[in-house]
Amino acid sequence: MAEATELLRSEGLTVRYGGIEALRGIDIYVNSGETVVVVGANGAGKSSLMKAVIGMVPVAGGSLVFEGQNITSTSTAKRAKMGIRISPEGRRVFANLTIEANMLAGGYTMSTKERAASMEWLFDTFPMLADRRNAKAGTLSGGQQQMVAIARALTARPKLLLLDEPFLGLSPVAIAETSNAIRVVQEQGMAVLISEQMARPALKLASRGYVLRSGSLRRSGAVAEIRELALSEDYL
């Protein structure tokens, strides 16, 4: 196995909305090919972190480096072109577009040929997408919409896949299916950054993780090291 190279690094990442500090000086890194999980209760700042990485919220302080390039003030569209994709919190599929059109939109930055090959692979791997390719995404169930959101991000064969709360609002069966889909992604050698409140299934997918509370990092390390804190984090 080739030696892992660093793909993403944040240093002192700070995000503010109005008067509230959603993230205070976060340092994380993701190596190529690895899966990293960020767990924390609601409002801990998980989504702010994901949005800051893709550029959907402006960074108030600190820096973001992707593949050795400083992307702190790079536009979202440019970051997408550099190989970052997100499956956002709440899925946000293009409701009026078919599954196929959603995936086409996901591969917007690719050449037609590459994109066709990528979509063919996705249709083969996830038959549900092929079966309902002409269905409007807004008419699908929550689990199916999550699959579309992931497939939309995967079409572009990103170097870094951001999964923001992929299990949100899903039934246990749908969570298991989504987990399986994420494993398929991992086999492809993509780096995955997952933010999730449901620590148990999320921790199973990752090798390393971070525990976030009130916008600050509480702990980081291998899954075994953070498991206890992650599961006891005061959701309840």
Binding site: I54, G55, A77, P88, F94, A105, G106, Y108
Partner: peptide
């Protein structure tokens, strides 16, 4: 059509 549906997400697709 993607931009009409969800402008922010469409931007995140490049």
């Amino acid at each position: 059509r993607a931009l009409t549906d969800d402008r922010e997400m469409a931007i995140a697709m490049g």
